[in-house]
């Protein structure tokens, strides 16, 4: 199921014009990272996908649904949204209840709910924590609970808002694994991220926003090579891209595999 965004404009009640005419198609099964400086409009954009915000002008379609005409509750069956701060999202007394809440609410039968919850807990490595109160977990693991509770809803589209913030390397690898698994299941994954290296290692398409508009959109490899243009939205290229440039490597490299291949040939 595609997401179609047609000349989307959004102005906050304060008068702040956050999106100034965005047109994009996000195809079913794509892994898309959205990057750009604080205030570029990233969160405002994705909050239109699940109806948390409604267009001031233009439209957003999720499959054949015009999001302006569907409730947030209805859109939740198609679009899962993992908040940047898990504390904005968690409310149950134990992890199991939290993770089961979404699929139950979508009206799945008990067997199906159990199966979805089990899979979500195992992907996020929370199997041992089902009875724990989410607020007794560290922020890292609370993030995992937030992630599990959305994955368990089995939506065709999953949005992650800053998934790697405050996470250590082990945890980032766990999140990357979740994204890889969702990809195998042909789900669309959209992530807002400042972590450009995470983006270079896990996403095939990158959209750079600046000042409420699309600055760049394309394959990760091509977009992340545009150092000067990305600088306009305060995005540094991936670390190994910069290193490759400083060394004068012929081709742009965006991750370790590409870098080692390139220096190995020199």
């Amino acid at each position: 199921m595609n997401i179609e965004i047609k000349d989307l404009r959004f102005t906050y009640p304060t008068g702040l014009e956050a999106l100034k005419g965005i047109s994009l198609t996000i195809n079913a099964g794509e892994q898309v990272a959205i990057v750009g400086q604080n205030g570029a409009g990233k969160t405002t954009l994705v909050r239109h996908f699940n109806g948390l915000l409604r267009p001031s002008a233009g439209s957003v379609w999720v499959g054949e649904w015009d999001t302006a005409k569907y409730s947030v509750a209805k859109l939740a069956s198609r679009v899962g949204y993992v908040f940047q701060n898990p504390d904005e999202q968690l409310f149950s007394r134990d992890v199991l209840t939290e993770v089961a809440f979404g699929p139950k609410n979508l009206g799945y039968a008990k067997d199906k709910v159990d199966e979805l919850v089990k899979r979500a807990l195992s992907l996020t490595e929370l199997n041992d924590q089902t009875e724990t109160n989410p607020y007794d977990l560290s922020p890292t693991w609370r993030k995992m609970v937030a992630l599990a509770s959305i994955i368990a809803m089995d939506t065709p589209i999953v949005i992650f808002d800053e998934p790697t913030t405050g996470q250590d390397a082990v945890s980032v690898a766990r999140i990357a694994n979740v994204i890889a698994e969702l990809k195998k299941e042909d789900k669309t994954v959209i992530a807002i991220t400042h972590d450009i290296d995470f983006c270079a290692e896990n996403f095939e398409r990158v959209i750079a926003l600046s000042n409420g508009g699309v600055l760049l959109d394309g394959e990760a490899h091509d977009v992340l090579a545009q150092e000067e243009i990305l600088a306009q939205t305060y995005v540094d290229p991936p670390q190994l891209t910069r290193l490759g440039k400083m060394l004068g490597l012929k081709d742009t490299v965006i991750n370790q595999e590409e870098f080692l291949k390139a220096v190995g040939q020199d």
Binding site: D168, A169, V170, A173, D197, Q239, L240, L243, Q256, F259, L260, V263, G264, D266
Partner: peptide, 20 residues
């Protein structure tokens, strides 16, 4: 231990193995 390692450190560690 899997923490506190920059990408430059880990790429150089791998590159050391391949001789670059």
């Amino acid at each position: 231990n899997g923490f506190g390692v920059s990408r430059y450190t880990s790429v150089a560690r791998e590159a050391k193995k391949q001789g670059s």
